[in-house]
């Protein structure tokens, strides 16, 4: 358990520092440069976003995620209860 915690903290520090470094090193880099040709019109889901329907997707994805996590939480609780019974 201790190892998990150390690993989690380690990962967080690693990602935070690399992310920070990159953010500092590349503050201006928001536009991606293409060749000298005029920028073609690139299709994105603009109308979907304008119609507001992307939020439907977000809600569906969140429902799936919350459902799966809730299931995992109940499993976790059940195992914890068994562990307690075993100890007694």
């Amino acid at each position: 358990m201790k190892l998990f915690r150390i690993l989690a903290v380690w990962c967080f520090i690693l990602f935070a520092t690399t992310g920070l470094q990159q953010a500092q090193a590349q503050p201006e880099q928001t536009e991606v440069e293409f060749s000298s040709a005029p920028q073609p019109e690139i299709e994105m889901a603009d109308t979907l976003r304008q119609d507001g329907k992307i939020y439907v997707v977000v809600v569906v994805l969140l429902t799936v995620l919350v459902g799966l996590i809730a299931y995992l939480v109940t499993l976790d609780r059940k195992v914890a209860r068994l562990e307690k019974q075993m100890r007694d």
Partner: peptide, 9 residues
């Protein structure tokens, strides 16, 4: 090219 994009990071 876009790995460097801080929005993605």
């Amino acid at each position: 090219t876009y790995d460097l994009d801080s929005r993605l990071r």
